[in-house]
């Protein structure tokens, strides 16, 4: 199969994720959309690695996974803390900076 198709898929997934981050209010959904964008980037990495025939892109993909794992831990912790104090998972409720 033409590797370009993988790149198209990657772009579509990234766009879905980006739109989701901007338009959704539920913190969990926003969070999942961020994961989606990370994984779209991962897909692009491994595709490029396959196209150029070396391993650098694949190694980068591992790094991205580790970063994503860390981000999940920290991000979920923040969401849970906010939920505990404000009884809401909406990102629009956490807008104290503007006041």
């Amino acid at each position: 199969m033409n590797p370009t198709n993988y790149l198209y898929l990657s772009a579509i997934l990234f766009s879905i994720g980006a739109v989701g981050v901007v338009v959704r209010r539920n913190a969990i959904v926003v969070f999942m959309c961020i994961e989606l964008m990370l994984n779209a980037a991962n897909l692009a990495f491994v595709t490029f690695a396959n196209m150029t025939g070396n391993l650098q892109g694949q190694v980068m993909a591992f790094f991205t996974m580790v970063v994503a794992a860390c981000e999940v831990v920290v991000g979920l912790a923040i969401i849970v803390t906010i939920y505990r104090s404000r009884r809401s998972a909406s990102v629009d409720d956490a807008s104290l900076l503007s006041r």
Partner: peptide, 14 residues
């Protein structure tokens, strides 16, 4: 410009 809404910041970054 500083609304305090995460999605606005995300949009600006994008």
């Amino acid at each position: 410009l500083q609304t305090g809404y995460v999605r606005n910041y995300a949009l600006l970054i994008l």
